[in-house]
Simulated assay, not measured.
Amino acid sequence: MELTELSNLLKEQNESGKGFQIHLNSGNLDEKSQHNTDVEFGDLYFTNCRMLGNTTLLSFGNNEKKPVGFNEEINQPLYPMEINSSMFIDIARIEAVEAVENFEDWFIFTSSRVINLYMLPQNNNVDGHRNVVTIGFIE
């Protein structure tokens, strides 16, 4: 899969309003993926993604999140704590994009598709371990 196709899929998911779920260095990956195993994040949820200005940074955030309530005492909407969560991916450091098959149990919520982003190793050694970002498109 090419970055342009990934970009189109991310745009379509944004427009659907269904959001994204993300794993970093998932335990679901094959050992041959050469992913980092010292840190794993799972089930991070974001309402949207976008490119930051004229940079190569793809930003996942929750700025489309709806309020969960309203505090009449201070006359303000109430948002969940994760509203300030965000994640950034430098697309210039993506080595490969892979459409995942057989992803039914990768996330808590059902995904319509799952994509792995294989990042370049930090030491630029082709055989080095890398971060793998798994993006689930919430159904």
Rank of each mutant, 00 (worst) to 15 (best):
H23L: 05
N71R: 11
R113L: 03
E40I: 08
E104L: 03
F103A: 12
I138R: 05
V39H: 07
I74K: 13
V132K: 10
P121R: 11
P80K: 15
N14A: 08
E15A: 12
Y118I: 02
P121G: 04
L52R: 15
E82G: 11
T110S: 08
I22R: 05
K66Q: 04
S112L: 03
V39L: 12
G53V: 09
G42N: 09
A96M: 07
G128M: 00
V100H: 03
N25A: 07
L44K: 15
G69Q: 12
V100L: 02
I22G: 03
M87S: 13
M1R: 06
F70Y: 14
L52V: 13
S112Q: 11
R50W: 00
S86K: 15
H129M: 04
E15N: 14
L58T: 04
F88Y: 15
L6H: 09
E72T: 14
V132L: 06
S86I: 07
A99H: 09
T134K: 02
T37Y: 00
Y79T: 14
F70S: 03
G53C: 09
K66E: 01
D38R: 14
H35K: 13
S7Y: 07
L117F: 02
F88L: 14
I135S: 03
P121I: 08
E101F: 07
Q76C: 07
W106H: 10
I22Y: 01
L44D: 06
Y79M: 12
G27Q: 09
G27I: 09
G27P: 10
E72W: 03
E139G: 13
F137P: 06
